Simulated assay, not measured.
Amino acid sequence: MNKVLLTLTAVFFVTTSFYSPEVTTRKTEANLKARPSKSVLKAESKSITTSAEEIYTTIKFDNVNKLNPEVFYKAFLGFENLKKAGKLPAASHLLTVCDFSLSSTENRLWVIDLNEHKILFNSLVAHGKNTGEEFAQKFSNTESSYQSSLGFYITESTYNGNNGYSLKLLGMDSGYNDAALQRAIVMHGADYVSEDFIKSQHRIGRSWGCPAVPRALAEPIINSIKGKNCLFIYYPDNQYLSNSEWLKSEENI
């Protein structure tokens, strides 16, 4: 009987000796490495903040209106999230920002080259006629509302229409601007977006919801940002800012 027990013990020892604690430890470590920790995700989130700060602090705003750093950060965060989602090409480096919290008499549109840390354009830009007078106040995603729409857009192709050379915009924020193509919300030039109009009316003219720019700048701006680049129309609307999927940090996506 003792011989049988000794034989079984020996067999058990031999068969289990292949499953060493070292192998188990390696498997556990591999599984842990495969799953990013919360601290890693937070570090990635911080990297966007750091990148935004580095770019912003090196941009020269000489002779142009200075973009609010908080608005730039939000625009940059959405830009990065759109790239990660495959909505923008990996090589995309142009970011256009419209800050509709500012007076329409100010140059509140910026086209920024993120690679060169350079302002390419700083221009007047119109909001919709039912969005407000000098200042924007109301926004809509509804057809025939004649209001501007908040959020992130991806620039598409160009065409010549009733307003001349124009740029199609694809709204990326569901419920806020995703009806842009249906509403014919495009970037185009307009004579009412000018210093002369400001002198006579104390504001620029208003569009039917389009981010219209000065006639002389329409073609160079459109040609610079056409074809899968990012446009962000900002306003401190708490509901939009908390709901946009593009403004969520990585740990919340």
Rank of each mutant, 00 (worst) to 15 (best):
A212D: 00
S17W: 12
N107G: 11
N229F: 05
A75G: 02
A184I: 09
G161N: 00
K66G: 11
K87E: 13
G209C: 07
R35I: 15
Q137N: 15
K129A: 05
Y19K: 13
V193Q: 04
G209W: 07
T9S: 13
T25M: 10
P69N: 03
E134I: 13
W208A: 03
K138P: 06
P211D: 10
T15C: 11
P21D: 10
L102Y: 07
G86E: 08
L150M: 05
H188D: 09
N68T: 11
N177V: 10
F13A: 13
V125W: 05
T28L: 15
I185H: 05
A34P: 02
P220F: 08
A43G: 07
L95D: 02
G132L: 12
N160A: 14
R183H: 02
F197L: 05
E53P: 02
K42P: 05
K226I: 11
L5P: 01
E219S: 04
D173F: 06
P89H: 05
L247Y: 04
Y240C: 01
A43W: 15
G171S: 06
C210W: 01
G189I: 07
N68M: 03
H202P: 11
N229M: 02
N141T: 08
A85L: 12
V64W: 06
R203I: 06
T57I: 11
A180T: 08
T7Y: 15
A126K: 05
G86A: 03
A52P: 00
K38S: 13
M1L: 06
K129L: 11
E195Q: 09
A184C: 10
K228M: 12
L114A: 05
M172P: 14
L88Q: 05
S92D: 11
E106R: 05
F18W: 10
N2Y: 14
H202V: 08
I198T: 09
R26N: 05
